[in-house]
Computed example of a mutant assay.
Amino acid sequence: MLFDLPDHDTLYEALLARDTRFNGQVYVCVASTGVFCRLTCPARKPRKENCTFLGTVGECLEAGYRSCKRCHPLEPMAMADPAIATLLAALDERPDYRWRESDIERMGLDLSTVRRSFKRQFGMTFLEMARQRRLRDGFETLAGGGAVIDGQLDAGFESASAFRAAFLKLLGKAPGKLSTDPLLFADWVQTPLGDMVSVTSASQLHLLEFIDRKALPKELERLNVHAKGRLGIGQTEPAAQIKEELDAFFSGSSSEFQTPLAYHGSEFSGAVWDALRKIPAGTTRSYSDIAVSVGRPSAVRAVARANGANQIALVVPCHRVIGADGSMTGYGGGLWRKQKLLEIERQYLSEKARENHHVTD
Rank of each mutant, 00 (worst) to 15 (best):
A271Q: 07
G295V: 10
L184K: 09
A248Y: 01
F257S: 06
A31W: 13
D247K: 09
R133Q: 14
L184Y: 13
A85V: 01
M124L: 06
K45P: 10
Y97Q: 13
C29E: 08
A353R: 13
Q258L: 08
D150L: 14
L193T: 06
F22N: 00
R44D: 11
S117E: 08
V199D: 00
G333N: 07
A248R: 03
M77D: 08
R164V: 00
G270I: 04
K119M: 11
V114A: 01
V26Y: 08
K218P: 12
E256N: 06
H358A: 06
G323E: 04
T236V: 11
N23M: 02
G295R: 08
D289Y: 07
Q235T: 06
F118P: 04
R337E: 04
V225F: 01
R66S: 08
K119I: 13
G58K: 06
T200N: 12
M129C: 14
D9G: 12
Y12W: 09
G295Y: 11
P238C: 04
A63I: 13
K48D: 05
C51V: 05
H8F: 10
L335H: 00
A130Y: 05
S254F: 02
A165Q: 15
A89N: 12
S251D: 08
E256G: 01
L135P: 09
G144V: 09
Y12Q: 12
V272L: 15
G64Q: 06
F139V: 08
L341Q: 01
R337I: 06
M107V: 11
D181K: 04
T33M: 02
W99L: 10
P217W: 06
H264T: 14
T284E: 12
V197S: 01
A240T: 02
A302W: 04
F53A: 14
A155P: 08
D247T: 00
L170K: 06
A304K: 03
A14L: 15
L168A: 08
G176F: 10
G265A: 11
E59H: 03
V114G: 02
